[in-house]
């Protein structure tokens, strides 16, 4: 599997996801600077976490208008899978790859902690390594992870099974204390209708080996390699 990681000024999880992908794929992903107008041929595009352009104007706003993102949108429309993590999720919504928007956390604080997530949709190349309903643990680290979408969009996400991950308690049940940022419907990650784009606020790459405190993210990378090789 050939993966490309788009690196923006202010990305800071690009190397983490590179290490995680290389461990699963056995080959290093290509790192592409944001001003490249054409990405190399690839089986997977990753938009990494970080604080692209210092979150100026709005999170992800400037990065979404970069030269590389115009090509990412073209590739995504042609069916190339896109994994958008944290700031990458924010960039993906700003670029129109996914609906809705990520807003300031409801509690106004930057949240940095391990959270429990329920896999609500296992039918995608990103989530097929998990069982539907499985509870996994991954870290979150963000100030703007409060997912918002209007009622029609939410109904469509629910109806088409496009909510991939939800914040839950350790028991797998939703509840106010389990949602770290105020996201509508406890949404932690969503898919596009073709299930070729996943955006999520939690960091699977920071949960990719036991030395990091947990390895539940490993199944995502392993299954992507299996599905896309």
């Amino acid at each position: 599997m050939k993966a490309v990681i788009v690196v923006f000024p202010g990305s800071n999880c690009d190397r983490d996801v590179m290490v995680a992908l290389e461990a699963s794929a056995g080959r290093a992903p290509a790192m592409i600077w944001h001003d490249e107008a054409t990405l190399p041929a690839c089986d997977l595009i990753v938009l990494p976490g970080g604080f692209a352009h210092g979150d100026y104007l709005r999170v992800g706003a400037m990065a979404a208008r970069s030269a590389a993102m115009a090509d990412v949108v073209r590739r995504a429309e042609a069916g190339v899978p896109v994994l958008a993590i944290c700031n990458g999720f924010q960039v993906a919504t700003e670029a129109g790859l996914l609906p809705g928007a990520l807003m300031r956390n409801a509690g106004l604080r930057f949240v940095c902690s391990w959270v429990s997530l329920r896999v609500d949709e296992a039918e995608s190349p990103f989530t097929a390594g998990y069982e539907a309903g499985q509870v996994v643990r991954m870290p979150v680290a963000h100030h703007d992870g409060n997912y918002f979408a209007d009622a029609d969009t939410l109904a469509r996400l629910e109806g088409e099974g496009l909510i991939a991950f939800r914040y839950v308690g350790a028991d797998g049940e939703r509840g106010e204390g389990a949602n770290p940022n105020g996201s509508v419907a406890d949404i932690a990650g969503i898919l596009n209708p073709a299930r070729t784009v996943l955006g999520l606020m939690p960091h699977p790459e920071r949960a990719a080996e036991p030395a990091l405190g947990g390895a539940d993210g490993r199944a995502m990378f392993d299954h992507l390699v299996e599905a896309l090789s």
């Binding site: 104007l57 709005r58 706003a61 208008r65 700003e94 809705g100 928007a101 918002f148 979408a149």
Partner: peptide, 9 residues
């Protein structure tokens, strides 16, 4: 429409 505002929100 294209940059300064996010018309979703």
């Amino acid at each position: 429409a294209r940059l300064l505002a996010n018309t979703v929100i």
